[in-house]
Design a protein around this nucleic acid. Sequence first.
DNA 1: CCTACCGATCGGTAGG
DNA 2: CCTACCGATCGGTAGG
Lengths: 199, 199
Amino acid sequence: MTETTKPRRAQILDSASRLFSERGYHATSMRDLAGDLGMQGGSLYAHISGKEELLIEIVNVASRQFDEALFTLRDVQLPADEKLREAMHRHIRVVADNMDSATVFFHEWKHLSPEAYARVTGWRDSIDAFYRELITRGISEGTFRADLDPRMTAYLVLSAVNWAYTWYRPGGPLTPGDVADSFADMLLGGLRSEIGSTA
Amino acid sequence: MTETTKPRRAQILDSASRLFSERGYHATSMRDLAGDLGMQGGSLYAHISGKEELLIEIVNVASRQFDEALFTLRDVQLPADEKLREAMHRHIRVVADNMDSATVFFHEWKHLSPEAYARVTGWRDSIDAFYRELITRGISEGTFRADLDPRMTAYLVLSAVNWAYTWYRPGGPLTPGDVADSFADMLLGGLRSEIGSTA
DNA sequence: CCTACCGATCGGTAGG
DNA sequence: CCTACCGATCGGTAGG
């Protein structure tokens, strides 16, 4: 009974993710969305309760993906540098595998109602905390430089993995793993050569 | 004669930058904007030709600031690592000093008409090229590691300086220069300590 | 800069 | 899932 409506709902969410990411939430009308699915505007409401439900669900699915990717890594026993590399792999993979909903997630969450908004803010904080704790442990282990500021370091890592939503193109020459390894190599080892440092 | 209308236009642009960055372009109505300035909706059209003119001007001002900050650095004679640090200083300063219009710039440019859209795309490409050339020169100078991919390196630097629009808070404990130095230190020198490298 | 208004479009609903 | 419709609001204009 719910098995026939579920795929239709999934189709609606896919279309909504794409249109919201391309045009923005407010610039996408319910008639745009219905047209993309070959139906009339009013027909959507047989499957969903309203426009905001779509935004909430897209954002929730995206944040759940980040959650699952990173928090299963929390208690894994690995040196901090390897763990950071693995976290970046997973983080970029979520972005790359969900370009549309990730874009919606990063751009449209401020249009959520207060409760849903607070949930997203909480998620963001917990991701920040995950990276800060990883850095802090790496410093006390001696893997990372002792003079790092965990907060700034976490911002730098998050910049790299999150900003990928603006430029990464799935199906292009780079896999998400290529990107993660390249960024991790540069972040861990630094850009400067051994010989030529001047500052 | 134009001297009395110019400040009013500037006020409208400031309000529009703030409202567009907080609520988004399409979610901000002209009546919201007028109300923020203590006037009626229709009165705005004595000063501007339409809503999109505001978006175009905000985005143009922002991109001009990035242009001026970076392209005056192009022909400065400096080792690549110092030049990269200086570019990051300037780039982050533009973001930090224009949080509202930078946010509009990053989020709302896709709502521009085709011509204005193409201009922004062109600007983005030229900023990318600026950083890629800087990296390439640094590699051939011997300042940067020979195994760097200039394209990926430029993406990493741009991630760091652009993503600041999401978390930086002017008036907080960190100056734009603090952020730039912290990021530049980490990027140039790497996160790993000398002793504890495992990978 | 205001009042009053325009046509268009919005999200959503009723009834089938 | 469609047709037909609702009140509300949109960007913008006319005339003053």
